[in-house]
Write a protein that binds this DNA or RNA. Structure first.
Length: 423
RNA sequence: GUGGGCGUAGCUCAGUUGGUUAGAGCGCCAGGUUGUGGUCCUGGAGGUCGCGGGUUCGACCCCCGUCGCUCACCCCA
């Protein structure tokens, strides 16, 4: 047991696992680029108001999961619990030309008891699109997520979708819902019997039988959409369908954050047996810029959890790496190491991935290291090669000693290697 | 926040009803004659048995506490 360990609910990601992360992020960056999104890097902590104004003071995240701290200047900050609020704050602050489309990858912090697929620091990648309420934008954001999941090889993913309407639709619904909950308050679960009135929508999230029973015969959100919101929602669903992306209407899907309006959605990985099977989610937040002090601007985005995406891939039996991180050449130098230093520099500048041995180990030891490195080719430099101005090139995948290796001229090494590795 | 399971080498684990130098496999390091990996053989390094206290002549083993891991509830990525 080491003296220090990673804090509760956090994890170190090292090779070979880290290659999966690299591939996942690289794939997402590629897709975001294809869809016209640019990278946004924002602080991992913000004034706490950035989060509680949008996410909602009565949400679970704000009431019991925030990492809050005071700095030496006695300013109160919070580590970000999700990705959207910071990007929207940056949008309000800098007012870029709209539509503004940004992607991000970031850690997210929530003070919860860890369990399978749930951590105190997890990582999300996602996008935000601000400045358009065109249903085509909803479709594009959702399609990006969908195609990205496809690129990861995931096949058992379902898209759940709902619309919360704009502020007035939502207010009308909440009023009726509140009345319904009031009538049945004695039947609610222990937690919500006490708290149902502060944020009635939270009760829809509750999975306890008692609350489910009450809300199931309560009012249904889609019935309260105004004509505009209903048309918008229909256009989003039709757009998705036209791309071959099927969505399931989930009338009680309200999501955990208060800022959502109109379209809300969630991606569920059925391969994950655990309760933590949501691999991504998002929606519109047409009032959020105003809550953060900006001009009214509509927006939509989604976030997806890297750890859960990897768990979902594992659960579907997907083992491909998404990115090649093997090295090309391993240099074995038995003349002391200076030749390896020079050769490695030359080859790396020529574009090869090169590894070498250190500490002047024996040839046998260096060859073992070469094998372990996964390199395709070992380059051997001993006194004989040094004298002759040559290199012994050995293909580590071949098991035939006669044909596996040959002496090559050091002068033409780069070309020789390129030629050999292309075969 | 509540509850269950578990903490023995880098990893996966064994360790008889408490008995003295705590083991295995894998991994790592070094050899197996004169410059060659992947197989094989030999040897070696590496552990305050999570931590603290208690019971006992004696604790990896029993008791208490504590920290951590893990799973579940709740909620979410």
């Amino acid at each position: 047991m080491s003296t220090f360990q990673a804090p509760i609910g956090t994890h170190d990601v090292l090779a070979p696992q880290s290659a999966l992360w690299e591939g996942l992020v690289a794939t997402f960056a590629q897709y975001a680029y294809r869809y016209g999104f640019t990278l946004a890097v924002t602080p991992m902590f913000e004034e706490i108001g950035v989060f509680n104004r949008g996410i909602g003071e009565h949400s679970d995240v704000m009431t019991k999961e925030m990492y809050v701290f005071t700095d030496r200047g006695e300013r109160t900050y919070a580590l970000r619990p999700e990705g959207t609020a910071s990007v929207v704050r940056a949008f309000v602050q800098h007012q870029p030309v709209t539509p503004y489309k940004a992607w991000y990858v970031t850690p997210a912090f929530r003070y919860e008891r860890p369990q399978a697929g749930r951590y105190r620091q997890h990582h999300q990648l996602g996008v935000e699109a601000l400045g358009s309420d065109d249903p085509a934008m909803d479709v594009e954001v959702i399609a990006l997520a969908w195609r990205f999941y496809e690129a990861l090889g995931l096949t058992r993913v379902r898209l759940l979708i709902n619309s919360m309407g704009h502020a007035e639709c939502r207010a009308r619904y909440v009023e009726v819902l509140r009345g319904h909950l009031d009538e049945h308050r004695e039947q609610l679960c222990d937690e919500h019997r006490a708290s149902w009135s502060t944020n009635p929508l939270r009760v829809l999230d509750c999975k306890r039988d008692a609350c489910v029973a009450v809300t199931n015969d309560g009012p249904s959100l889609p019935d309260f959409l105004c004509a505009d919101c209903a048309a918008h929602f229909a256009a989003v669903r039709a757009g998705l369908a036209s791309l071959g992306i099927s969505s399931t209407l989930q009338p009680r899907l309200v999501r955990g954050f208060d800022y959502y309006t109109r379209t809300t959605f969630e991606f569920v990985a059925d391969a994950l047996g655990s309760a933590q099977n949501a691999i991504g989610g998002g929606g519109r937040y047409d009032g959020l810029t105003e809550q953060l002090g900006g001009k009214p601007t509509s927006g939509i985005g989604f976030g997806s959890g890297i750890e859960r995406l990897l768990l979902a891939r594992e659960a579907e039996g997907l083992t491909s790496n998404l990115i090649n991180r093997s090295i090309d050449v391993f240099i074995v130098d038995t003349t002391g190491g200076a030749e390896a230093t020079a050769l490695a520099d030359q080859l790396r500048r020529a574009g090869f991935a090169v590894e070498r041995a250190y500490d002047a180990r024996s040839m046998k030891s260096q060859m073992k290291a070469a094998d372990r490195s996964g390199a395709r080719v070992a380059l051997l430099v001993g006194p004989q090669e040094l004298e002759a101005g040559q290199i012994t090139m050995r293909d580590l995948r071949s098991d035939d000693f006669e044909t596996a290796q040959r002496r090559v001229e050091r002068a033409g090494l780069v070309a020789t290697l390129r030629e050999h590795l292309s075969k």
